[in-house]
Structure formats: structure tokens, C-alpha cells
């Protein structure tokens, strides 16, 4: 089936199967590889994108269901919150292997968009769906707080 996906502000006409996950359309068909594959069952958060502003696991979201909605990937992040989050990430050297960090940043930006001054509990709750096997969690927490302080 042919659908139109609005990704990072631009419409893309793509041919998909009814069950094709959004993740693989983004990666394989559109070549936006910042969004990562980690588990395929919404357990790790590496594939997190924003759909109408909500942090969403693109590995279990059928592309067809996201047609017409506002999809943002790491490549399309913009605005003050995203800038401060990415600056904080760099200032603290958060990433190690780095593979999960696109998803971490997408979740962090969504958190700060809805909760500008999150406490530890709110950070843990919002970020607990994003696994980092390098366990960079101490710095993720601190980077979110540092970014929040700038907003």
C-alpha cells in the first residue's frame, strides 16, 4: 500500500506492507539511520521517535498507522529544548558506544517538553524504557537536569 509519511516536516510517499514497522521505513526506505534498531518489541527504546510530540517506539508502530501524523526523528530535532539537551549530552560526554543515544535524546526531549523541571523520579520514570547497555545512566540523569536548568 502507498502512504504518505510526514517526517521532519517533509512529506514522503512510500510503498509499505500493512505491517511494516515505521522504524524500517525510516531506516531502509528513507535512509534516516540515526534511529536505531535494538529489540523489535518496544523493550529498549533505541528506535524512539516523536509522533505528534509523543516519544514513540517506531519498531512496533506500523508505518501505515503513522500516516499523516507529525513524525520527528533525531535528524529533525530542533528548537531550544533539543539544543539544550544535545549540548548537555556533549558537555558531559554522555555517550560511550553511543548506539542507544538517539533514542535516549528523543525520550529526554519529550520529557522536558512535557515536564520542564523533572525530579529524579520523573526522569527515571520517563527514561526507564530506554536501555543503555553501557549504563551511561548517571550522566543521562545529570544531562537532563543540566538541560532543564538552562530552559
Amino acid at each position: 500500500m502507498q502512504i504518505t509519511l510526514k517526517i521532519n516536516g517533509k512529506p514522503h510517499k512510500v510503498e509499505v506492507e500493512a505491517d511494516t514497522p515505521l522504524l524500517w521505513v525510516i531506516r531502509d526506505q528513507l535512509g534516516l539511520t540515526g534511529t536505531k534498531f535494538g529489540c523489535g518489541i518496544a523493550q529498549c527504546g533505541a528506535c524512539t521517535v516523536h509522533i505528534d510530540g509523543q516519544a514513540t517506539r517506531s519498531c512496533v508502530t506500523a508505518a501505515a498507522d503513522a500516516a499523516g501524523m507529525d513524525i520527528v526523528t533525531i535528524e529533525g530535532l530542533s528548537g531550544q529544548i533539543a539544543d539544550e539537551v544535545q549540548k548537555a549530552w556533549i558537555a558531559l560526554d554522555v555517550p560511550q558506544c553511543g548506539y542507544c543515544q538517539s533514542g535516549q535524546i528523543m525520550s529526554a526531549v519529550a520529557l522536558l517538553t512535557s515536564t520542564p523541571r523533572p525530579g529524579d523520579g520523573e526522569i527515571d520514570a520517563a527514561m526507564s524504557g530506554n536501555i543503555c547497555r553501557c549504563a551511561t545512566y548517571v550522566r543521562i540523569r545529570q544531562a537532563i537536569k543540566d538541560a532543564a536548568a538552562k530552559l
Binding site: T33, T35, K36, T73, E75, D93, P95, G98, S102, I105
Partner: peptide, 21 residues
């Protein structure tokens, strides 16, 4: 010293094997 790979890993631009096209 800041890591040389941090910026690319904080923007989705770092290239891993899975990203090779």
C-alpha cells in the same frame, strides 16, 4: 579532554555497521 566521538553520537550522525548503505 572531550571525547572525539561525542558530538556525532549525540546527533544520530555516527555511522555503525547497521547504518551502512
Amino acid at each position: 579532554l572531550t571525547r572525539l566521538d561525542t558530538a556525532s553520537k549525540s546527533s544520530g550522525k555516527a555511522t555503525y555497521t547497521i547504518d551502512v548503505r
